[in-house]
């Protein structure tokens, strides 16, 4: 039987069937895989947080190796001693604070609602780490990460990630040579919470100067780099009041 594929009714019916078939396939796939995907995302967050604290399995100079997914949950509860949610002046304990979506909180803040800000307190070798989430804009999409501070407001480690920065350019924010530069920099300039700027004219490729609130920029990634600077100063300012209470003076 030959079908007349030129008729309008056929076209409309074909389009409807196509939409239903494709829609069902994708909906089925999404719902059957969503648990697994959520679990992966949770593990990733734990890995990122531990990485910022300096708990990783890095081998040589260039590698970024997280705690493997089968061990990460255990390690996470070992090292992270306290999880707080800062909501205006209220500070509450919440064991799932690390799962708070910063994107949503920042959007709510724009609408005038008080954001729920997660603050994680970790402990390694009897030293306290205060870990704050970062969230900002890169060139093509969101960038985010975590920064671990000590009670002097000196960065102990960071982890950055991005959704769609250009490979070889902006995507290099998650390379060791970029992230490692932040370690040892202070987010304080005097008593101001200045953050850390990704600066082109820093002229410090070996990153010896630790007190200038600046790290070397990435070649060819000006906008992503500026995005990182803005992300850090904005996030640090969100936590300013809390950080002031824990700062050793």
């Amino acid at each position: 039987m030959a079908i007349n594929t030129e008729k309008n009714t056929y076209t409309v019916i074909f389009a409807c069937i196509m939409v239903v078939v494709v829609g069902s396939i994708l909906a089925f796939l999404a719902s059957s895989l969503s648990d697994k995907i959520k679990e992966n995302e949770r593990f990733e967050k734990q890995q990122n947080i531990l990485y910022a604290m300096g708990i990783n399995e890095n081998e040589d100079e260039g590698s970024v190796n997280f705690i493997p997914t089968d061990r990460v949950e255990g390690e996470f509860s070992n090292y992270i001693k306290e999880q707080l949610v800062i909501e205006g002046d209220q500070i509450t304990q919440d064991d799932e604070a690390y799962l708070i979506d910063m994107k949503k909180q920042l959007a709510e803040m724009k609408n005038g609602t008080t954001p729920r800000l997660p603050m994680l307190i970790g402990e390694k070798d009897e030293k306290k780490f205060f870990i704050i989430p970062l969230y900002g804009k890169g060139l093509w999409g969101p960038i985010w990460g975590f920064a671990a501070l000590d009670d002097q407001m000196v960065v102990q480690g960071v982890y950055f990630d991005h959704q769609s920065e250009t490979p070889g350019l902006g995507a290099n924010i998650k390379q060791r040579y970029f992230m490692d530069d932040f370690t040892g920099e202070s987010i304080l300039d005097g008593t101001q919470y200045a953050g850390i700027a990704v600066a082109k004219g820093n002229n410090d490729p070996l990153n010896n100067t630790k007190d200038d609130n600046e790290v070397d920029a990435l070649a060819g990634a000006t906008i992503t780099g500026n995005g990182v600077s803005v992300m850090i100063s904005q996030s640090v300012n969100l936590y300013k009041d809390y950080l002031e209470t824990i700062r050793a003076k």
């Binding site: 594929t5 030129e6 056929y10 076209t11 074909f14 389009a15 196509m18 494709v22």
Partner: peptide, 13 residues
Amino acid sequence: IIPSKIRIIVQLI
């Protein structure tokens, strides 16, 4: 079976 009028859309899908 693809109607020629909407073939580009079908390909895209």
